[in-house]
Nucleic acid binder design. Structure first.
Ligand SMILES: NC(=O)c1ccc[n+]([C@@H]2O[C@H](COP(=O)([O-])OP(=O)(O)OC[C@H]3O[C@@H](n4cnc5c(N)ncnc54)[C@H](O)[C@@H]3O)[C@@H](O)[C@H]2O)c1
Ligand SMILES: NC(=O)c1ccc[n+]([C@@H]2O[C@H](COP(=O)([O-])OP(=O)(O)OC[C@H]3O[C@@H](n4cnc5c(N)ncnc54)[C@H](O)[C@@H]3O)[C@@H](O)[C@H]2O)c1
Lengths: 204, 204
DNA sequence: TCGCATTTGTGCTCACATTCACAAAGTTAC
DNA sequence: GTAACTTTGTGAATGTGAGCACAAATGCGA
């Protein structure tokens, strides 16, 4: 396929494929067809084929996609083939849950530091990590941490994001219910649980 | 505007507008223009006007939208004008955080029950709620609970969703990293933190 | 009362995303 | 070796949503 800009939607689905392939890897399955994968993920087969083909042809006609090497390719594409360190900002109720969540490791993420502004929390341990003060955020670059999860109140989140950007952070997962204004070079993905819940009654 | 099917994307943005308007309500602002609102939410003004106009014209030309009545209209549209009870399934790390989260009340949600399968947790209190056993899920309809948040391991989530559907649940917020197959009449919205984080390195 | 400034509501166009349909390429069975 | 079958990769068609541009409506001041 001649070069085309990769659609954002395609990129968004890649981790989905990677998760499924990682699972199949564990199950020991050698190959999977776009149809089988589509059934699992509740997508249409051509969607999957087109998505994967943006990054080159790595399936075998008549057979499907080789599970292990396709997974590895997607890891490379998404830059998840190297372990990515992540800073967690906010050791409150949600932050504590996130810090203990093993689910990030499927994608090679490693919560490498936790920060909070509350003096009562600084120095306390959360799993194997010691909660650090917010000053220490400024040294993230030296520690090769370029990703952050923001789990502090919405009113504090914008200032925090700016501090993270100054500290060299390149990507932010925002769990606070607000928009974060950042330079274009920084990517923000926001998840808002209340908003997600908010649409459900409409469809009842 | 002649009748048109309301785009899913428009519905998805409505809670966003409602959150902003609720905030403005508190701040005591009387009216807001699409431009002002767009600046806050980082959208383009025509987007907001078009979205709102799907539900009828409720702005005033030359002025903007009346904050209080627009908020009330959106609440009615989204069926958030009546208090919605929500069941929480899973009182683990994430479930505990969710149970204590006050942010759902902006939209009129009320976590009305918490369930877990672990005998060690059943009967314990989590805030003002007592953790119930999974048997009790079957009685949700009688308690007028038609929404649920699923915060249990992915392997258990599908079976749980089926049980919820049998119990009359009409909408599910799924926090487990998996697809939930449910009848078409039931709406599922899934949030997957690891997947959201997974795209960030690609953009670095 | 009139003209100017403001802002909504919406038809239209364009961009993006999904899905179809089929040729190309490979496998399997005999 | 070949015929039947499977599945990929992709151009084209279709569907969906975003944004522009402008008419219509309203407010306000002179
Ligand atoms: N609890 C949930 O289930 C839940 C669900 C969805 C969204 N959220 C959002 O996640 C965020 C955190 O929620 P929570 O329930 O954990 O709140 P929390 O109050 O339990 O914890 C917030 C933590 O952030 C720390 N903090 C506050 N301001 C800070 C700052 N400027 N810098 C560093 N640390 C700071 C506080 O000391 C506290 O430890 C909020 O924005 C909330 O809306 C929470
Ligand atoms: N912890 C996080 O920050 C986080 C982040 C993103 C997603 N998640 C997802 O949320 C879900 C819960 O995560 P967690 O960290 O709270 O896990 P957890 O292990 O701390 O808690 C899970 C809870 O669910 C209960 N449970 C298990 N099976 C059940 C069943 N069939 N019916 C009822 N209850 C059941 C367990 O008793 C336990 O209390 C998981 O799917 C996880 O992947 C968690």
């Amino acid at each position: 396929m001649k070069y085309r800009k990769i659609p954002d939607e395609t990129v968004r689905r890649m981790p989905m494929y990677l998760r499924a392939l990682s699972l199949l890897e564990q199950e020991g399955q050698q190959t999977i067809s776009s149809r089988q994968l589509a059934d699992r993920l509740h997508l249409k087969p051509p969607q999957i084929r087109k998505d994967l083909s943006y990054f080159g042809a790595f399936g075998t006609r008549g057979i499907g996609y080789p599970v292990v090497s396709a997974a590895q390719q997607i890891r490379t594409i998404l830059r998840l083939d190297v372990r990515q360190k992540v800073a967690l900002i906010g050791a409150g109720r949600l932050g504590t849950a996130v810090a203990a969540y093993p689910g990030f490791s499927v994608f090679g993420f490693d919560i490498a530091a936790v920060f909070d502004k509350s003096p009562a929390k600084i120095g306390k341990k959360i799993g194997r990590l010691v909660i650090e003060d917010m000053q220490s955020v400024d040294a993230l670059e030296a520690r090769q941490i370029r990703l952050a999860i923001v789990a502090i109140p919405a009113e504090e989140a914008q200032a925090c994001a700016e501090r993270l950007v100054r500290a060299g952070v390149k990507g932010i997962l925002n769990l606070a219910p607000c928009y974060l204004a950042v330079p274009k070079r920084v990517k923000v993905v926001s998840l808002d649980m209340a908003m997600a819940l908010g649409v459900l009654p409409y469809y009842m």
